[in-house]
Deep mutational scan, measured.
Amino acid sequence: MAAGGDHGSPDSYRSPLASRYASPEMCFVFSDRYKFRTWRQLWLWLAEAEQTLGLPITDEQIQEMKSNLENIDFKMAAEEEKRLRHDVMAHVHTFGHCCPKAAGIIHLGATSCYVGDNTDLIILRNALDLLLPKLARVISRLADFAKERASLPTLGFTHFQPAQLTTVGKRCCLWIQDLCMDLQNLKRVRDDLRFRGVKGTTGTQASFLQLFEGDDHKVEQLDKMVTEKAGFKRAFIITGQTYTRKVDIEVLSVLASLGASVHKICTDIRLLANLKEMEEPFEKQQIGSSAMPYKRNPMRSERCCSLARHLMTLVMDPLQTASVQWFERTLDDSANRRICLAEAFLTADTILNTLQNISEGLVVYPKVIERRIRQELPFMATENIIMAMVKAGGSRQDCHEKIRVLSQQAASVVKQEGGDNDLIERIQVDAYFSPIHSQLDHLLDPSSFTGRASQQVQRFLEEEVYPLLKPYESVMKVKAELCL
């Protein structure tokens, strides 16, 4: 049975990233139509530049190519590739079939990587351009969430054990800070992308030097003109047959890092959902379990974690691919890159769409948070109580021993009897502590235990987050809708 299948058929496997999760716009960027249309555009740009620099290419040939950029006979191309065992030459023939007058000058002087690699770089750039505003929107939604809850005390956790208090907004800023680093890295790697350009079979530009009869300047002009037509500021000066596969490492490393950030955020949300302090959106008709109707599973956060793990592992592909590119190139890269580049971007696209949807509907339960604080705060307040007693004339050592005994009794009630923490009640009825009984409410005010959390939130948002989001103001209103 021949390899390949009808990918629109229910009898043929289709990647869930495309069929179930990723956005239509990201799927289109990695589609065959987008790819092969870009090949034709690159052939047109090459012909236009070659004509401008004096090669015998007519206006009629150029116009014929322009008129057929979208006229792609995919069936013919597939048949040609089956016959020739070469995808680029299959599309040269297919393009030439609908451009008979231009057929002889299509791909003039070029090698397969002229269309293959340059198209990949265009796709990487455009895919990054799709991700950047999506990530900015996630940051914006979380920034709104953090600002609104900047002063809401909550129990902090280290080692997932109760620690000092923080605020809900401050905790959210930990998430935002990681995503801001990801946004900066995505922008950097996007701006650092260079075009492969017009380089020939081993990167020496020998074929173009021959076409222009040894004119170095025209060869350099050709490279520059096509690079500018493709919208790049610069091209690699040095290439082998391909652009260095280190570029793929750079791009997928940034995406993998984004995956790590999203995994951490969504894990926190899942843990908070278990504590009943916070939940992701839950639709009115949504079913959490087929057997347990009360369940409210954090399905979206779980999906993000599941896909983020996949995204983090994909960076190993370009690392290994770059390491086995012998001399000017081997074909070890080809099949692998067809999979890992598309999957990385479709996965990143999915987790950003999902995280935006989550961040637009996060639900906080202040009463649950308050109750958990009441359970733990008495123990945390013991040092403040000791200091207040010393100020009232008591002995630190005597007070410490009193607190120690009462704390152990209260802990026994919590752990052995399943009761509430009654340390404060014990202190309130103990005559030894009568000098500070009137101060206990103040000493137990949760806001006095959150330090500068709310001020940190305000400063972080104003100095770091809002300036970073400013270039994306025009796209901030787009909502994230999930079908599944």
Rank of each mutant, 00 (worst) to 15 (best):
G288E: 02
E220M: 11
L352P: 01
G231H: 12
N71A: 10
Q439N: 15
D223E: 10
I386T: 13
T267F: 13
M89N: 01
L44E: 07
G203M: 01
E213T: 15
L121P: 00
E376H: 05
G116D: 15
G393L: 05
T167G: 04
D430C: 09
K101F: 09
H263L: 04
H91S: 12
P24A: 11
E25T: 12
V226Q: 02
D32C: 10
K75V: 10
A480E: 15
V247T: 13
I62R: 05
L155D: 03
T382I: 09
D32I: 13
N297E: 01
E283R: 06
V315N: 06
Q164K: 00
G197R: 02
Q416S: 11
K66M: 07
H437I: 12
I427S: 05
R196W: 02
L461Y: 06
Y294F: 07
S412Y: 13
G5V: 08
A2R: 14
V29W: 08
D182P: 05
V92L: 07
H93P: 01
G104H: 10
D129V: 11
L468Y: 12
T227M: 07
A344L: 03
L130R: 09
K276N: 06
M476F: 15
E481Q: 13
A103S: 11
S140R: 12
Q409G: 09
H107P: 00
E425A: 12
L346K: 04
M476C: 15
D11A: 08
R374G: 08
Q61G: 10
R137T: 15
G451C: 01
A431N: 13
F460R: 03
R374F: 06
I339T: 14
K101E: 14
I249M: 07
V475G: 14
P162A: 05
F145Y: 09
G169N: 04
Q416F: 13
V413R: 12
F236E: 06
R296Q: 10
L468F: 07
Q408H: 11
S412L: 14
R40D: 00
F95H: 07
T267V: 09
Q184K: 12
I72P: 07
K276S: 05
I57W: 03
L193V: 11
I106D: 00
V364I: 08
G361V: 05
F449H: 06
E328R: 01
F236R: 05
L142M: 12
N274F: 12
E462I: 10
S334I: 02
Q325E: 03
A103T: 14
V198L: 12
L186Y: 04
T94R: 08
R374Y: 06
P435W: 05
S290K: 03
P366Y: 04
A18H: 11
E481W: 11
A2G: 06
C305V: 06
L17N: 09
G54M: 08
G116K: 02
L222Y: 04
V247Y: 10
E60I: 08
K229D: 03
L352F: 15
L186A: 12
V324E: 06
Q356K: 03
A127K: 00
S448L: 15
L84Q: 14
I373M: 11
N118D: 02
I139W: 01
E280S: 01
E60G: 10
E343D: 14
H97D: 12
M387Q: 13
A163S: 14
R33C: 13
F30Q: 09
V138T: 08
I123H: 11
A77I: 15
V88K: 01
Y114N: 01
E81Y: 03
A230R: 01
T166E: 02
L271N: 03
V198A: 12
L222C: 11
Q61L: 07
R190W: 08
M380I: 05
S407E: 02
M278I: 13
A22Q: 10
E417H: 09
S359P: 10
Y243C: 14
Q428F: 11
K295S: 02
D420T: 05
V429E: 14
Q456N: 05
W326R: 03
M389Q: 09
R303A: 02
E64I: 12
G4E: 15
K477S: 12
I105C: 14
F236M: 08
T111M: 03
H93V: 14
V92G: 07
D333K: 04
V262W: 03
Q428R: 13
F30K: 00
D441Y: 13
I358G: 05
E213H: 14
K35L: 11
P366E: 13
R137Y: 08
A308N: 05
L165W: 00
T202L: 06
Q51P: 00
F157K: 07
R196C: 13
E463A: 10
R338N: 00
A273D: 09
L314P: 03
T201Q: 02
M316H: 13
K284M: 12
F30V: 11
S207Q: 01
C99Y: 04
L183C: 10
E279T: 06
W175M: 03
E79V: 09
I238E: 04
F28H: 10
H93A: 14
L17W: 14
M278N: 03
I237P: 06
R372L: 02
L258D: 01
I351A: 10
S31D: 09
D192E: 12
T52Q: 13
L193N: 03
K66A: 11
L130H: 08
V363F: 07
Y472N: 15
Q416L: 13
I424R: 13
P100W: 07
L108H: 09
L443Q: 02
Q458D: 14
G240P: 06
E81V: 00
H91E: 08
V251M: 07
H442E: 12
E250F: 10
S306Q: 03
G104F: 09
Y294L: 02
S395G: 11
T167S: 12
T313K: 04
E370C: 07
K477L: 14
M316Y: 05
S323D: 01
A78P: 12
E280M: 00
Q286E: 03
H400S: 02
G214V: 06
D87E: 14
M292C: 02
I403M: 10
G96T: 15
C266P: 05
I369S: 12
K66Y: 12
E401K: 14
S359L: 12
L155V: 02
E50W: 04
